[in-house]
């Protein structure tokens, strides 16, 4: 219990350092662009694949579960769209990125810690926490919502293709369904959730990396711990935000 409290304390101290003013904007800016390429563009592939297949699977399952002849067929399109928007895309992308970017952030920063590169930054008079984490944080908070929107689109495309080739819902019903009573507000909600997840992923992974001591073994362990904690926190945040906004 005491340990948890001291961890939270150290996390908050680190956050304050992360949010301090950059030594030099141009360098932070360039670094942010680089991180966007790494963690944003670099994740499009995996997000696309996962979303596409999940979208297809949800469509088949929803069709399988709603066999009531009284309900119009387009309701399947509506359900697929809303499950992707409200739940699947943001959480799925969050978990995928926690695995991909979170682990890499934790091990990169951890490795820099154990090889004294962070000390070297500090001795130069650079705020290492800000220099290492601020660009990543900005890059992910901007890019995760974009990935989430992309995931919704590709999930819907997956469903569409299933309708096209398989014997699920007529394509016209599906298309009608995914357009039926669409609240843009749902999309904003999903993207907001993603931004919160991005904040959690970067800062938790950064925290674990920043406070490693030891060697390669500890770096590996801390990146695993960061992933586990990130998953838990993302799912908890999901519950809290859903409760706050949709209720």
């Amino acid at each position: 219990m005491l340990k948890a409290l001291s961890n939270i304390g150290r996390y908050l101290v680190m956050l304050r350092a992360v949010f301090s003013k950059p030594e030099k904007f141009s360098i932070y800016y360039r670094q942010t662009i680089r991180e966007m390429e790494d963690h944003g563009l670099g994740s499009i592939g995996i997000v696309a694949i996962v979303s596409f297949f999940v979208g297809a699977a949800i469509t088949i399952q929803t069709d399988f579960n709603i066999e009531n002849p009284l309900l119009p067929r387009y309701i399947i399109g509506v359900t697929v769209r809303d499950s992707l928007l409200l739940e699947f895309s943001s959480t799925m992308v969050g978990l995928v990125i926690a695995g991909k970017s979170g682990s890499s952030i934790a091990s990169q920063i951890g490795m820099m810690r154990v090889t004294e590169q962070i000390d070297a930054l500090e001795v130069m008079g650079i705020n290492a926490a800000a220099y290492l984490m601020q660009p990543k944080l900005i890059a992910l908070v901007i890019f995760l919502p974009i990935l989430c929107a992309l995931s919704v689109a590709l999930g819907l495309l997956g469903g569409y293709l299933v309708c096209l080739v398989g014997d699920v819902v007529p394509v016209s019903d599906y298309i009608y369904g995914i357009q039926y009573v669409f609240y843009p507000y749902y999309l904003a909600y999903a993207m907001l959730k993603s931004a919160v997840y991005a904040f959690i992923i970067t800062t938790v992974a950064g925290y674990y990396g920043y406070h490693v001591s030891g060697g390669a073994l500890e770096v590996g362990r801390s990146s695993t711990q960061a992933f586990v904690l990130n998953c838990i926190l993302i799912l908890m945040a999901n519950l809290v935000i859903t409760n706050l906004i949709l209720h």
Binding site: M111, M112, T115, E116, Q117, D119, A120, V123
Partner: peptide, 10 residues
């Protein structure tokens, strides 16, 4: 400062 292990940014 020169660190014992060099500490170059890899």
């Amino acid at each position: 400062m020169l660190f014992q292990g060099g500490a170059l940014f890899d």
